[in-house]
Amino acid sequence: MSRLQADQVISEVNYNAGDPSYEMADPHQYLLGRQLEKELLLQYDKGIVSLAQRVTCPLMWSHYGDQHRGVCIGYSVPPNAQHDLHKVKYGGKRLVDASKVLAMLDGDKDAGLQVDEAVLLRKAASWRYEQEWRLIGERGLQNSPLELEEIIFGMRCTEAVKYAVIAALDGRSRSVRFYEMSELHGTFNLKKYPLDEGEMRAFLPRRSRDTDEAFESAAFPVAEK
């Protein structure tokens, strides 16, 4: 932001602070804080990939897995990308000291990390069950540093979806493991089990006339009198 633009922002803040609808002790501070927040977000030209630490959380399957009908994708993080992977912190405050922002804009890396933590790596305590990690990098289309390791199907995922995903990943130079979720009897707990691909491939895909033809081949001729 140029000096002229900054002066215009301050002028607008001074003007809008006189609005009686702002029922607060210091509307100047509030409006200036909003403008600083807006400018800070403009400086954050970063992309985020959100990941979860565990696959057995029923809430995660309900909220993000189409009520257990979806799939979960498991990745590994190569050593050269692990410095971009950060654990989300829950609770605390979202406030950022203006001095830290200024230091970050001046190139202070430590201040930048502190601002990153407040802006990109903090969520309300009620989201703690997600156990989220975030991979932070450049925005836009690019090659992923993550390695696809496994696909886990929800316990309500249809056989057709399972087969379609498995077939789509055939022929990869790096193999992928397949699992399916199941509820432990008498509990609310979930557990993943290896998926029997061989059995699925033996029966899928099916033609709509397969069943009719099977009955036709098994029909017995009626004896003539």
Results as ranks from 00 to 15, higher is better:
Ser2Glu: 09
Ser2Arg: 09
Asp7Gln: 15
Val9Pro: 01
Asn14Cys: 08
Asn14Ile: 09
Tyr15Arg: 15
Tyr15Pro: 00
Asp19Phe: 03
Asp19Lys: 06
Pro20Asn: 05
Tyr22Arg: 02
Ala25Trp: 11
Ala25Ile: 15
Asp26Gln: 05
Pro27Asp: 12
His28Ser: 08
Gln29Lys: 15
Gln29Trp: 08
Gln35Leu: 06
Leu36His: 10
Lys38Val: 01
Gly47Tyr: 11
Ile48Asn: 04
Ser50Gly: 04
Leu51Ser: 00
Ala52Gly: 08
Gln53Asn: 14
Val55Trp: 09
Met60Ile: 05
Ser62Asp: 04
Gly65Ile: 01
Gln67Pro: 00
Gln67Asn: 15
Val71Glu: 03
His83Tyr: 15
His86Lys: 14
His86Glu: 05
Tyr90Pro: 00
Gly91Asp: 09
Asp97Thr: 06
Ala98Arg: 14
Lys100Thr: 06
Met104Ala: 13
Leu105Val: 08
Lys109Cys: 11
Asp116Tyr: 00
Val119Ile: 15
Leu121Tyr: 00
Leu121Trp: 02
Ala124Phe: 07
Ala124Ser: 11
Ser126Thr: 08
Ser126Lys: 11
Trp127Lys: 05
Trp127Thr: 04
Glu130Val: 01
Glu132Trp: 06
Ser144Trp: 01
Leu146Tyr: 04
Glu147Val: 11
Glu150Pro: 01
Arg156Ala: 06
Thr158Ala: 10
Tyr163Lys: 08
Ile166Gly: 01
Ile166Pro: 02
Ala168Leu: 13
Asp170Phe: 06
Gly171Trp: 06
Arg174Ala: 07
Arg174Glu: 05
Ser175Arg: 11
Val176Cys: 04
Tyr179Ile: 04
Tyr179Gln: 07
Leu184Asn: 09
Thr187Trp: 02
Asn189Tyr: 09
Lys191His: 11
Lys191Gly: 03
Lys191Ser: 11
Gly198Cys: 08
Met200Thr: 06
Arg201Cys: 06
Phe203Trp: 10
Pro205Lys: 08
Arg209Met: 12
Ala214Ile: 07
Ala219Val: 10
Ala219Gln: 08
Phe220Leu: 15
Ala223His: 05
Glu224Asn: 12
